[in-house]
Design a protein around this nucleic acid. Structure first.
Length: 343
DNA sequence: AGCTAGGGCAAATTTACGTCA
DNA sequence: ATTGACGTAAATTTGCCCTAG
């Protein structure tokens, strides 16, 4: 059995999962389990990641160019997962609502565009590190769907509610920046969290500009945004691990049941062999499993007046096993046979 | 090629906050 | 109203990897 570890890699549902589910429903189990490890595993593993299409493959240096299976069976669909590979400089990822919000809207008094009006925050945060470079504004940018959703979501709440909530978080952050003494831990407001969550759905990692833009947008320190994304990735991985664990448990149970069933069958066959010795008079049949093609060759030896006659037929293992039931047979492992052409 | 500094990330851990009995 | 336990999220620490100089 091959276990390929690949936690939460692909953003799409797994075809493999459907397959294994089907198999399980039939009371059998596919002997190929992949359990994902999307965050490239432990830190002590040398790793490299590369994006191929919308797929991300994890390559560990200790394994040469061997790739971990990219088809894990159970995927908790929590991940956006199209992170920027380390090996290449982060391309400008699309954050449509960000790019818009960073550009002063013509006719907009606050200059922050639509959506979260962070200018309502009384405390200005130290954003001198924010690069006001032109890269942040895209000529093709449009109002993002999230921004629309964000506004809709807040519609039921009063302006005062939002102000109070976000002010609490941001003012605490600003206080910390200012006095620099004891750093109080702040809870992000629901709006800030939701915004970060939406960003995370777009991209689970941020390049520096996106980080700064998000920080500015939410009136947080860039470090806070960075930490939030780190923790979010950790949470996602934890959840995925739990899901994988559950899946493996079920696999284990199924395999145990199958093992019991086979043991029982074996016992029955043995009992049959001892209770009905007349079967021994039948010509002995040798089942030979070819390790490469997994075909079973049955060799029947019979004696006649002129000598021993041996015939060999090749069939697939399932058929051979079903034929062999109720019949005395010998199993000879590792006997190579000449592959006969199959029609 | 080897070295170093800087940055980013994962993992582990700590700490502060919010909730509930 | 207070308190302690507990869960969770924010923040910190540590160590590794990668890249640029």
């Amino acid at each position: 059995m091959e276990l390929a570890l690949s936690l939460g890699d692909a953003p799409k549902p797994f075809a493999f999962l459907d397959k294994t589910t089907k198999l399980s429903n039939n009371g059998t189990l596919g002997f190929c389990m992949g359990v994902g490890s999307g965050f490239s595993g432990r830190s002590d593993e040398k790793r490299d990641t590369r994006e191929i299409g919308d797929r991300r493959e994890v390559i560990r240096s200790g394994e040469g160019d061997k790739k971990i299976s990219s088809d894990p069976p159970v995927q908790l669909d929590l991940l956006p997962f199209s992170p920027v590979p380390r090996s290449q400089p982060p391309a400008q990822l699309r954050f449509p609502w960000l790019t818009d919000n960073l550009v002063s809207e013509p006719g907009s008094s606050d200059g922050m565009g639509r959506g979260l009006d962070v200018n309502r925050f009384p405390m200005a945060i130290a954003m001198d590190e924010v690069d006001d470079g032109a890269d942040l504004s895209s000529p093709n940018s449009t109002v993002s769907s999230f921004q629309m959703d964000f506004s809709v979501r807040n519609r039921g709440r009063t302006k005062r509610d939002l102000d109070v909530e976000t002010e609490r978080a941001s003012s605490r952050a600003s206080d910390d920046d200012e006095n620099g003494s004891t750093r109080k831990k702040l809870r992000l407001s629901k709006e800030q969290s939701a915004f970060l969550e939406e960003s995370f759905k777009e991209h689970s990692t941020l390049n520096p500009k996106q980080k700064l833009a998000l920080a500015k947008q939410l009136n947080l320190r860039p470090r806070q945004v960075e930490v939030w994304f780190q923790n979010r990735r950790a949470r996602t991985k934890l959840k995925q691990t739990e899901v994988d664990c559950e899946y493996l448990k079920r696999c284990c149970e199924t395999l145990t049941q199958e093992n019991r069933r086979l043991q029982k069958e074996l016992q029955e066959l043995r009992a049959l062999k001892t209770s009905q010795p007349f079967y021994m008079q039948l010509p002995a049949t040798t089942l030979t499993m070819c390790p490469s093609c997994e075909r079973v060759a049955t060799t029947t030896s019979s004696s006649n007046a002129t000598g021993t006659n041996t015939t060999t037929t090749t069939t697939n293992s399932a058929a051979a096993l079903s034929l062999s039931k109720g019949r005395v047979y010998q199993v000879q492992p590792h006997m190579h046979h000449a592959h006969q052409p199959t029609s």
